[in-house]
Simulated assay, not measured.
Amino acid sequence: MELTPTQAYRLGHLYHASIRQLVLSTYADEQTLDLAALMIWEQRLSVQGVPVPRRHRPTRFVALEISS
């Protein structure tokens, strides 16, 4: 499947966010991109059968060991 220039541009941003392990909102802010548009393109590319990289989702909970 050959990508259009717009698809390649958006996919490139999604890959850079994933490789840099940045949350999509942080990446969008850093690159001055519209987060909503980036998320729409992520979904659109996926529906079109284009392999989209997984989003980075930081761990929200940390395991603690409690000693008495």
Rank of each mutant, 00 (worst) to 15 (best):
A63H: 09
Q31W: 09
H13L: 07
Y15V: 09
A63I: 13
A17K: 04
A8L: 13
W41C: 06
S46R: 11
L24I: 11
R57L: 01
D34R: 03
L14W: 02
L45M: 09
M39S: 07
R60L: 00
G12A: 09
M39N: 13
Q31G: 13
T4L: 13
A36Y: 11
S68L: 15
T26S: 11
M1Q: 10
R20C: 05
S46W: 07
D29R: 15
L33E: 07
I66M: 09
R20E: 15
E42P: 05
S25C: 04
L11D: 02
E2A: 02
A37S: 13
I66C: 08
L11H: 01
T6P: 03
L11I: 00
Q7S: 00
E30M: 12
A28D: 01
A37V: 14
Q31Y: 14
L3D: 03
D34G: 06
H16E: 09
E65S: 05
R55G: 04
T6Q: 05
F61N: 11
V23W: 02
F61R: 08
R54S: 10
R10G: 05
L45Q: 09
G12T: 04
R10P: 01
E65Q: 12
T59M: 11
L35C: 05
E65R: 06
G49M: 05
Y27G: 10
G49C: 12
L38Y: 00
E30R: 14
H16W: 02
L38G: 04
Q7E: 06
L22E: 14
Q48I: 12
E2R: 08
E30A: 10
M39L: 15
S68G: 15
T26M: 07
L33G: 09
V23A: 04
E30S: 13
A28R: 11
Q43G: 13
H16Y: 00
S46V: 04
V47H: 14
H56Y: 12
V52T: 02
S46T: 12
I66D: 12
L24E: 07
L35K: 11
E42R: 15
E30C: 08
H13P: 03
G12S: 14
T32H: 11
Q43M: 12
L11Q: 03
L14P: 06
S68Q: 10
L45W: 05
A63S: 13
R60P: 05
R60W: 00
V23N: 08
T32G: 07
V52I: 12
R54C: 03
T59P: 04
H13N: 06
E30D: 12
H16T: 08
G49D: 04
H56A: 14
D34V: 11
L24H: 03
S25G: 05
G12E: 02
P53M: 06
M1K: 08
P51R: 03
Q7M: 03
A28Q: 10
Y27N: 13
T32R: 10
T32Y: 09
D34T: 05
L22C: 02
R10Y: 09
A36K: 13
L3Y: 02
Y9V: 06
R55Q: 06
E42V: 10
D29Y: 13
V47F: 14
D34K: 11
V47R: 15
T32C: 11
G12F: 01
Y9C: 10
A8V: 08
I19L: 01
Q21T: 02
M39D: 10
E42A: 14
D34E: 04
L3R: 01
